[in-house]
Design a binder for these strands. Sequence first.
DNA 1: AGCTAATTAACAATCATTGTTATAATATAA
DNA 2: TTATATTATAACAATGATTGTTAATTAGCT
Lengths: 150, 150
Amino acid sequence: MNSISNLVDIYRLTNRKITPQRLAIFNVLDSNTDHPTAEEIYEQVKSQIGNVSLKTVYQTLNELESLNQIQIIDVGTGTSRYDPNVNQLHHHLVCQNCSKVKDIELDISGEMLKAFSQNSGEFKIDRVEVVIRGLCEVCLGKGSSKQSEL
Amino acid sequence: MNSISNLVDIYRLTNRKITPQRLAIFNVLDSNTDHPTAEEIYEQVKSQIGNVSLKTVYQTLNELESLNQIQIIDVGTGTSRYDPNVNQLHHHLVCQNCSKVKDIELDISGEMLKAFSQNSGEFKIDRVEVVIRGLCEVCLGKGSSKQSEL
DNA sequence: AGCTAATTAACAATCATTGTTATAATATAA
DNA sequence: TTATATTATAACAATGATTGTTAATTAGCT
Ligand SMILES: [Mn+2]
Ligand SMILES: [Mn+2]
Ligand SMILES: [Zn+2]
Ligand SMILES: [Zn+2]
């Protein structure tokens, strides 16, 4: 994602208005590495500026995606995650216990494409997404038996 | 997935009843490589035995997953896909035009783990899922301009 | 300050999936 | 083969994430 002042420029140039809601959403996303859900962003924005609607959050997030400022990722946890990291190719670690999502840098193109071309007949690759599932550092530390505690 | 007669045995051994609905669902899944949705399975079962409810289809599919007979995959198309291929490690190609899902065999563990251990601190890997997005053979043939036709 | 297009909030709607429950069907033993 | 216990089914309501609708509000410009 671009800097907030760049976003403001982009918004002005595309006839979009700079509202407190949008600015607060930009702020929450800026340098965020947590892969928050829309609901989480909504809560943070609300604590910053008092009033937003969840609909506005969704609208702005979809808008930012279509401006290529964020990516919307679905790692199978039931809700979409919003990721401002679009400049650096990366993949994701997903904790099966706490559902936290972390970035991981992986260059798989080499071996990938080699094995792939042997296997797949015709298929024009646009992108490759890797999700690694397991237990994060925190949940490992707690011991996996903690999973079933309430 | 096991053979249908094996499934019948498993069901009997675990105090489950063999119903026409379940048998029809087994049949639809048997050797199926289409990664159908619950709705699609429901339609096929309906054309075989006349009456089922979608709820029964979901129930049976979840049951088969917990018996490790199928896997439920989510490739971000908005609906879960049901895959009887659980004995052979594999990944998925997803067509961005027609949403078809195809199996692909890829052994990424080597390079993967190497790059990974350099990058990720502590994380206990359970499984690695790769989704390759692009255009399938059919949609390539039609030319990508067909995408916007109605 | 006033105009106008864009934005917001409130609310309803959607879609996939799951919960509830009264009825029906299977397995098994008399 | 019929009765019985138990599991499964269908119908329907409910859920949760996301999107649609619209009347009221606001940003950006004059
Ligand atoms: Mn990321
Ligand atoms: Mn598959
Ligand atoms: Zn964790
Ligand atoms: Zn296709």
